[in-house]
């Protein structure tokens, strides 16, 4: 089934067959269809008589006869390979190249190119970090000890320097501290310094 617009462009209402008329009348009236037909028919025939002048055809035929297409530009390598030279010229060029090669070989001095000397130096450096630690030790003596045996061997001068033990009666009973250990300053016991000093220092 054709569309109504297409139908209207082709046929008037009178030219429609029964089935087409039924279809048209189910949508619109005969008068409206006729008006649409008139519109589209007139549009189709509008300017239908326009024709080109004969001179146009003549010009085009002349152009067709005279026109010679310009060959497309070839790539450079293809154009280069298309160049033809006489065989003797090619042979002469080869011989010339060989002669030049021979001449360069004989003329060139024998220059010995020393191999490049490669020296690798690896340098390692060390950084020392110095850190001084100080230690202090305090030695306590619990009580005064009696003169050890053999004290008599000590020189009289040195013995005089040895402090005598304090008699117990000199202590106040009430002031006796629980903590009875009494220390001796290390400065007064030079022997003890040996514990803290290294020989040679």
């Amino acid at each position: 089934m054709k569309e109504i617009a297409t139908l209207a462009a082709e046929k008037s209402f009178a030219e429609l067959d029964t089935r087409e008329r039924e279809m048209v009348l189910s949508v619109t009236t005969e008068a409206d269809y006729e008006q649409m037909h008139r519109l589209l028919r007139n549009a189709a025939s509008l300017d239908a008589r326009a024709a080109p002048p004969h001179a146009l055809a003549a010009r085009l035929h002349q152009h067709m006869a005279e026109y010679r297409p310009t060959p497309a530009k070839q790539p450079f390598l293809r154009r280069l390979s298309a160049i033809r030279v006489p065989a003797w010229q090619a042979a002469a060029a080869v011989l010339f190249a060989l002669a030049i090669g021979q001449w360069r070989k004989t003329e060139a001095p024998d220059v010995v190119v020393p191999a490049p000397l490669v020296q690798t130096i690896v340098r390692t450096d060390t950084v020392f970090l110095e850190k001084i630690k100080w230690k202090e030790r305090i030695v306590f003596r619990k009580s005064a000890s009696p003169m050890p045996a053999g004290q008599e061997n000590i020189s009289p001068g040195f013995a005089a320097e040895i402090p005598q033990p304090v008699p117990a009666t000199h202590f106040l009973p009430t002031s006796t501290p629980e903590y009875s250990a009494s220390g001796t300053p290390i400065g007064e016991q030079p022997e003890l310094l040996q514990f803290f000093t290294q020989p040679g220092q």
Partner: peptide, 30 residues
């Protein structure tokens, strides 16, 4: 295009509802 031409031609055809007619026809069957 057809709708617009029909509307422009209304006064030539002398029908007031022509535009509506073409609108209906074209929408349904074009």
């Amino acid at each position: 295009a057809v709708q617009k031409i029909a509307a422009d031609m209304q006064h030539v055809w002398g029908a007031q509802n022509q535009s509506e007619l073409y609108k209906n026809l074209i929408i349904k069957y074009l």
